[in-house]
């Protein structure tokens, strides 16, 4: 498979994932963890960093193996590689940051099916060089972390009155924000805010079905790629 032509500079590869193509706030991907682990800002940060590590690792390995993996088993191969990195991050957290490991719980393992990682693998890493893939992974991961931090900070600050554990306004907290409904609500408002700032009309569907790649990737018999 020939490598894709790209006119982006290396710096642009890194930065595009931060704001302009932010995977969660613009691409509307990876919303499960964004809703689930953002009760507290420090968990949000931890999840973001863990996902970024997996993203960089999987992008690099998939890019390295891009000429070797056959089309027919592309998706299972990517999934196995991603699962491998997720498990390694689990080891690291369990041994060195156990509070984060317990706080993230099942969602740490669920990084495996985070649409962002599989999406970047199929959309980018399999067609670009290792360096570019690593930068792309880093940029997207950091963008995801930013989105998580934003939602997490709002939820913790207004829901529990603390920020990163430091008490700020505990008297006026609206505790429903730290529960399930609050997650949906805050994320909706944040995305609406981003749309307002960017003056754009968002795609009406989220995740795989809204992804511009949906037609081609379903056709390539691998399923969702974003």
């Amino acid at each position: 498979m020939a490598d894709a032509e790209t006119s982006c500079s290396l710096r642009q590869e890194l930065c595009k994932g931060l704001i302009r193509e932010n995977p969660t706030l613009v691409g509307l991907l990876g919303m499960c963890p964004t809703l689930a682990v953002t009760q507290e800002a420090k968990n949000a940060l931890g999840m973001g960093i863990a996902t970024t590590l997996v993203l960089i690792g999987s992008n690099v390995v998939i890019s390295l193996l891009r000429r070797v993996i056959p089309q027919a088993v592309k998706l299972p191969c990517y999934i196995v590689i991603i699962a491998g990195f997720v498990t390694m991050v689990e080891f690291l957290l369990h041994g060195f940051v156990p509070e984060l490991y317990t706080a993230l719980g099942t969602f740490l393992s669920l990084i495996t099916v985070n649409c962002i990682i599989l999406g970047r693998a199929e959309l980018f890493a399999c067609k670009h060089t290792v360096i570019r893939s690593a930068l792309d992974g880093a940029g997207m991961g950091l963008g995801f972390t930013l989105a998580l931090l934003l939602v997490g900070s709002v939820r913790e600050l207004f829901g529990a009155g603390t920020l990163f554990g430091i008490s700020v306004m505990e008297q006026n907290a609206v505790s429903v924000l730290t529960l399930a409904p609050g997650g949906f609500f805050v994320l909706g408002c944040v995305i609406a805010l981003v749309n307002r700032i960017a003056h754009r009309e968002p795609p009406r569907t989220a995740g795989c079905t809204g992804c511009p790649n949906a037609a081609t990737c379903a056709a390539s018999k691998g399923g969702c790629s974003q």
């Binding site: 088993v73 191969c77 491998g84 390694m88």
Partner: peptide, 18 residues
């Protein structure tokens, strides 16, 4: 044959690393 073989090799490699 190549397809399942590659998948098996990659899975085995990942298992080994883990």
């Amino acid at each position: 044959i190549k397809a399942p073989l590659v998948l098996t090799v990659i899975s085995a490699a990942v298992c080994g690393m883990l």
